[in-house]
């Protein structure tokens, strides 16, 4: 148990430091990378609390996909870094209030249900009997079948909406169609024209016209 607690404190410390660096780093790209670090450490904390599925989802969805989108936005959008940093101190009171509320809420939660161990795998749903991925699977595809299918519909709506909002076909772009290139036949490219050969040899009459043009 002591080892688990040591690992918990390691993850928690790195998480807090990384979260601080997210809001203080000068370069937004560094902020995103620190956010990735804090997500990974958060996943470690979830694992320690026994919430393996949450840890897994955090890595898979947030680190794998959402952060990629963040990096796309930050690395390539032309944002003025100086102007972004101007309001840093103005937002401090608001941030302090929100942080205070969060601390009070977390304290109340810990005070209310404080008996169970946070670290060690017993605190979260499922405990040690079966992982909470198993428990989640047992109810998700059975009891909550309808919400599960509705989730597919929500994803479908997101997909269609993304296409409707951002897809622009550019008519002026020239590109190759490999299928058409492969399917092409000789008749489409080469046309043989049957012509009679000329009887008289070709004799250009350049002398007279050339001299006339030169004089004029």
């Amino acid at each position: 148990m002591a080892v688990t607690q040591a690992i918990f404190y390691l993850f928690a410390t790195v998480l807090v430091v990384a979260a601080l660096m997210v809001i203080t780093a000068r370069n937004p790209v560094h902020s995103v990378l620190f956010l990735v670090l804090s997500f990974v450490n958060g996943a470690g904390l979830f694992l320690l609390a026994g919430a393996e599925f949450l840890a897994f989802t955090l890595i898979l969805v947030y680190v794998g996909a959402v952060m990629v989108l963040f990096l796309f936005v930050l690395m390539m959008l032309d944002i003025n870094l100086q102007r972004m940093r101007e309001g840093f101190l103005n937002y401090l009171p608001l941030g302090a209030v929100i942080a205070f509320v969060l601390v009070v809420e977390m304290g109340a939660m810990l005070a209310a249900g404080g008996s169970g161990a946070v670290v060690g795998g017993d605190g979260a749903l499922g405990g040690t009997e079966a992982g909470n991925t198993t428990l989640l699977g047992r109810v998700l595809y059975d009891t909550y079948l309808l919400p599960f299918e509705v989730a597919a519909l929500v994803l479908l709506v997101a997909l269609v909406a993304a296409i409707a909002l951002t897809l622009r076909h550019r008519p002026d772009v020239k590109k190759q169609d490999p299928g058409q290139q492969v399917r092409v036949r000789r008749e489409d490219r080469v046309r043989l024209v049957d012509m009679p050969t000329e009887g008289a040899p070709y004799a250009p009459d350049t002398g007279a016209t050339g001299s006339k043009g030169g004089e004029g």
Partner: peptide, 26 residues
């Protein structure tokens, strides 16, 4: 903007994968 489109389509199917894991377990 089409970079966003690719990223958003990726996120949608990434979420789909997240639904697959509990299913595969049970």
């Amino acid at each position: 903007v089409r970079y966003y489109l690719v990223a958003i389509l990726f996120i949608v199917f990434d979420l789909e994968i997240a639904f697959f894991f509990p299913w595969a377990v049970v």
